[in-house]
Amino acid sequence: MKEPVLEVRHVSGGYRESGVLGTRKRYQEVIQDVDFCVYHGEILGLVGESGTGKTTLTRMILGMLKPESGEIIHHTKRPQIIFQDPYSSLNPVYTAEWAVEEPLRVFGKYDAKERKRRVYEMLERVKLPRECWNAKPDDLSGGQRQRVCIAAALIQRPRFLIADEPVSALDVTIQAKILDLIKELRDDLDLSFLFISHDLNVVYQLCDRVLVMKSGRIVEQGDIEEVYNNPKSEYTKKLLEASL
């Protein structure tokens, strides 16, 4: 819990609306002075209502959006993301196996045999039933799809992943299984996670530390037990009361 894998340093930013030929530009700030680290081996929770800028922050960390000020320092290569909606995160025309192999094809370092070996190993690891390996997304359940997405995100062996509400589209029983899988993978593969959720119970089950975000600012951060048992900000108290 010492080495940071990601440092977000006083980051502010948002969207610039561009007019028809890129002339008019209106700026809307979404993130204000956000400052935190993700440490090696931890699962850091990020909670907050929808519209507080969680997704915007994600896009900045992934380099899809430039912060207006502050800096984001990655200490790992190629962070990956697991999306909330497993229905749109898989290409409907290709099989599960294809989806997991694709990042390796893009990466281009291994031959076909080595790729297959890695893909099968990863599919075993995420416990996708063998009969689903050749199925297309339409024939998979939400939980199975999410396992495929996790496998695809892990196949390039990233050290750091963002999980953007990975279980909120799933049934409660499936949720628990996926959460267990994430924990197991963290331990086995030595991963670090930024786990985004609006569900405080899920975050409590899974995370080591937690950030609470409101209107683009972090209003509280700390160890999970500490924050849940002894919330300092009014907003955190309100959130906790609402979820109990």
Partner: peptide, 17 residues
């Protein structure tokens, strides 16, 4: 704007691909 396209970009897939 579907997630699988965003995911592909993150793994390093080029525009043509």
């Amino acid at each position: 704007s579907r997630n699988f396209v965003t995911g592909a970009r993150l793994t390093g897939a080029g525009h043509a691909r």
